[in-house]
């Protein structure tokens, strides 16, 4: 039984890994396509049908480009930077519940790699670790633009982690658990989605997720107009590719997190009224979950081609003077409402 369990988890890990890499790959295409459509043009459409092979070509190009490590760079750390970035991006998806249970033969397979009871905090910790990849890479490049980008990334991610954490506390007060699978299971049925109880919290969380992923309008660490390329100015070839990849994987994981925490995860309306077997419900649930994730990824890109980049002081003002007080107010509000509900309507 133990061997089967390990095998099952191993297969799941490989699948999750592959899926997140493929999604990250095709996010690059989607980004450019969506940018094209929003600017009334086609986007890449030469490689394959409608440009479908474009990410493969880009990947091939990344692999065959010359790798340059600057003479003044700190070699081991220069290599460690992108490695760390991609590792932290990949392991953060471990606690996301992708679906309910599948029955294969007489085994119940839970579609979640690890159901640890501090799942939300785990993601948080891994995301917090992600900034090391950028910082180490930026410092090891021995370039002032890289260093500035790295420093911006560090201060930005620390600032927005606080807001993110505080917005999550309000959510956790409602769900009363830190386990991802339980949080998702609680949201069965359209009206039970957490977005209806925590709209402000969701808004704060989403803003902070944008900042944590270094996406526009918070992409100051790699702001081309000021910092050449930010922390990856000196990077070339697949090392640059790894940084890009980790950014897109982070975006995918953040989307999955938002879908799971606030939009019911794999739950979809009328899932128990269709009279389907458990396996079919699970499969449809996984599809629904991915639909939500793609929706969020689209939203990420939609925002990117709508909003301009913030100035650095605006970024800090928004984080510290708007989002954190708002998140604290949200916690107090949630507490008061929970108390009233428990006292008078219990």
């Amino acid at each position: 039984m133990e061997g089967a369990f390990i095998l099952e988890k191993l297969i799941l890990v490989v699948i999750v890994f592959t899926v997140s890499l493929v999604i990250a790959m095709y996010s690059t295409l989607a980004e450019r396509k969506i940018a094209g459509f929003m600017q009334d043009r086609h986007g890449p459409n030469r490689a394959g049908f409608g440009g479908l092979l474009q990410p493969l070509c880009d990947g091939g190009k990344f692999f065959f480009k010359e790798e340059i490590i600057p003479a003044g760079a700190h070699r081991p750390l220069f290599i460690l930077g992108p490695t760390l970035a991609i590792i932290t991006a990949c392991i953060s998806s471990a606690v996301i519940p992708w679906g309910q249970t599948l029955t294969v033969g007489n085994r119940e397979v839970v579609l979640q790699v690890a159901d640890i009871n501090v799942g939300v905090l785990y993601i948080f910790g891994v995301v917090a670790l992600g900034v090391y990849g950028i910082m180490i890479g930026g410092w090891a490049s021995n370039n002032k633009f890289s260093l500035l980008g790295a420093i911006r990334a560090a201060s930005q991610s620390i600032s927005y982690e606080i807001g993110m954490g505080l917005s999550l506390i309000a959510l956790l007060m409602v769900t009363q658990t830190l386990s991802m699978s339980e949080i998702v299971a609680q949201q069965s049925g359209f009206v039970n989605w957490n977005i209806w109880v925590q709209p402000i919290g969701f808004l704060i969380f989403m803003t902070c997720a944008f900042a944590e992923c270094n996406r526009v309008p918070f992409d100051l660490p790699e702001c081309e107009t000021e910092l050449v390329g930010g922390y990856h100015t000196e990077y070339s070839s697949m090392k640059l590719g790894l940084y890009m990849f980790s950014e897109y994987i982070n975006m995918f994981v953040s989307s999955a997190l938002m879908a799971a925490l606030y939009f019911g995860g794999y739950n979809f309306p009328f899932m128990h009224d269709l009279g389907l077997s458990q396996n079919w419900i699970t499969i449809l649930g996984v599809l629904a979950f991915f639909l939500k994730i793609f929706g969020f990824i689209f939203f990420f890109m939609w925002i990117r081609w709508t909003l301009p980049r913030f100035r650095y002081d605006q970024l800090m003002n928004l984080g510290w003077k708007m989002l954190i007080p708002l998140a604290i107010a949200n916690i107090v509000l949630t507490g008061v409402i929970t108390l009233i509900k428990d006292t008078y309507f219990a």
Binding site: F124, G125, A128, Y132, M135, A154, S155, I158, E161
Partner: peptide
Amino acid sequence: FIVYMGAIMVLFLF
């Protein structure tokens, strides 16, 4: 993990 590795040490490094 979060507080020491993710925040305090980042500030040190910073």
